[in-house]
Computed example of a mutant assay.
Amino acid sequence: MLQGQLFSKTILPTLLHEYAKQQITWHQQQGDQVVVVSSSLDVYLKGWCQQQGIDLICNQLEVRAGRYTGELYQGDCGYAEKARRVQQQYSLSDFELVYAYGDSPNDHAMLALADKKFYQWQEIKS
Rank of each mutant, 00 (worst) to 15 (best):
residue 37 V to R: 00
residue 93 S to W: 11
residue 80 A to D: 14
residue 66 G to K: 06
residue 69 T to I: 13
residue 58 C to K: 01
residue 63 V to M: 03
residue 85 R to T: 07
residue 50 Q to F: 13
residue 57 I to R: 00
residue 46 K to Q: 06
residue 73 Y to H: 04
residue 92 L to P: 07
residue 53 G to L: 02
residue 61 L to M: 10
residue 56 L to Q: 11
residue 89 Q to K: 11
residue 90 Y to I: 12
residue 85 R to N: 07
residue 57 I to A: 09
residue 83 A to W: 06
residue 84 R to T: 14
residue 83 A to T: 11
residue 61 L to V: 12
residue 66 G to Q: 02
residue 48 W to M: 10
residue 39 S to A: 11
residue 92 L to I: 10
residue 68 Y to F: 13
residue 34 V to K: 09
residue 40 S to C: 00
residue 59 N to I: 15
residue 77 C to Y: 02
residue 54 I to S: 11
residue 36 V to H: 03
residue 88 Q to E: 15
residue 81 E to S: 12
residue 43 V to K: 01
residue 62 E to P: 10
residue 65 A to P: 08
residue 46 K to C: 07
residue 67 R to C: 13
residue 88 Q to F: 14
residue 65 A to W: 05
residue 38 S to I: 04
residue 44 Y to A: 01
residue 84 R to P: 14
residue 81 E to D: 05
residue 49 C to M: 06
residue 70 G to E: 09
residue 72 L to E: 07
residue 83 A to I: 02
residue 71 E to P: 01
residue 86 V to M: 14
residue 46 K to S: 11
residue 86 V to S: 14
residue 39 S to R: 03
residue 69 T to M: 15
residue 61 L to N: 03
residue 33 Q to A: 06
residue 38 S to R: 12
residue 51 Q to Y: 10
residue 91 S to K: 15
residue 41 L to I: 13
residue 84 R to D: 04
residue 42 D to M: 01
residue 55 D to K: 06
residue 80 A to L: 02
residue 61 L to S: 00
residue 65 A to N: 11
residue 61 L to D: 00
residue 36 V to F: 04
residue 36 V to R: 08
residue 64 R to Y: 13
residue 83 A to E: 08
